[in-house]
Design a protein around this nucleic acid. Sequence first.
DNA 1: CTCCCCTACCTTGTATGCAACATTAATATA
DNA 2: TATATTAATGTTGCATACAAGGTAGGGGAG
Lengths: 238, 238
Amino acid sequence: MTVAASISSKIVEAILSQQLTPDSRLGESELAALFNCSRTIVREAMLDLSARGIVTVSPRRGWFLTKVDAELARELYDARQIVEVGLLRHFAQKGRPLEQHLLLRLRAHLAEQQAALAEGHVGRRSYLLGNFHVCLAECLGNRLLAEKLRDFTVLTTLFTMRHQTPSDARMSYEEHVSVVEALASGRLDHACDCMSDHLGTWDAKVHMVREVDPLDGLRRALTPPMLEIRDETSEGKN
Amino acid sequence: MTVAASISSKIVEAILSQQLTPDSRLGESELAALFNCSRTIVREAMLDLSARGIVTVSPRRGWFLTKVDAELARELYDARQIVEVGLLRHFAQKGRPLEQHLLLRLRAHLAEQQAALAEGHVGRRSYLLGNFHVCLAECLGNRLLAEKLRDFTVLTTLFTMRHQTPSDARMSYEEHVSVVEALASGRLDHACDCMSDHLGTWDAKVHMVREVDPLDGLRRALTPPMLEIRDETSEGKN
DNA sequence: CTCCCCTACCTTGTATGCAACATTAATATA
DNA sequence: TATATTAATGTTGCATACAAGGTAGGGGAG
């Protein structure tokens, strides 16, 4: 794996496990120092992420994680619904059962999700819950769509991080289990419905979220006690 | 539009209109000279196309258009079917009619297709027949999927160019008309079926195509008259 | 004559230097 | 003191030089 590829995948992983906040700047020089390479290589990585819609560059200001607005989020959720349910439906039409080793792989992934959930490891939990969808797409036999789905998942994470969204990791996990079990027992239509519901609830959330006020912390710290502070300021004006 | 972006889109257009053969090499220096810029910029364009799966680099040998093998082609046709029919189905579920200006745009596009067909302008015809699918995806309100669909279309073209495929430009056009007319009259389920059939026939073709033998010309020139040539060679050994 | 090796050339890979511009801080002025 | 202007700093944008490696052609040995 080239250095550039490792930089971009590290960044993707960091987003998925919520270690990279949506407003963080990605400086070329800093990354070059961090990965012990030249800016050329870093640039290569950023260009890749840029082509995938994950970062955007503000000329001569820096690279930033893409700001996912409401319109983009809508397209994102629509796209995921179309691709993921479509993939399941397409698999159902073929009329062949899921190969054993693929089923094992999915179950192993579910076990990991459960472990991360039990341990309360937030980063890993977040990563695995997103990654499950990519894993499923791969198991359904389409790398092309699986890869694009990874990018969609990254953007989804960037959206939910910027907007407060009800936390429901356990519910997500259980819905994942339902999909896999439906697949395992050959109830393919039910698998489609489960996935549709799972993504549908997400879709409903887009309308529930409220923008996180970047000044929120500041505002809460200042607004009510503002007067007090003023008092103190005027009091001990040292 | 930056120079790098214009290079990559020029290459994409050239593929779609079949002006770039699948085995052509894309030299960095040559492109730099052609577009009057440095290799850095060309590289940027190639990296973009590479992220989209359209070109691949053979280390220190050069950049080439991606070789689409049978397995990739299968995923490609599956992906297109899933995305395009899914997009239509999703639109149908919303239960709103297609906005007037979008319908006009689609009909205008159909008219262009027909004109290119009538004029026998092969490049433009090929371009428009592929581009229709992107246009439709945009009209259905999902730029994210529309963009990915463009890349899929490019790869489809690269596949069909390398493999002999029955030519059926007129049939494709007529199937496009059917989809748009079904959309226009609100027969949304029928639109889905039309699109599914349209892509389905393509899917069937994947199994019909035969690899174009790169030695075919040579072989036909040599195989039957091989003996004659040997005779001549041994005869006039000048 | 055939085959192998070696050299010269050509291609991409990577680092670096300078240019262009945006931001910020400092300074001078009203 | 407030404001506008300017200088300093930091960032990406781009070109270029050189490194590394692949390919092909020529020359020599068998």
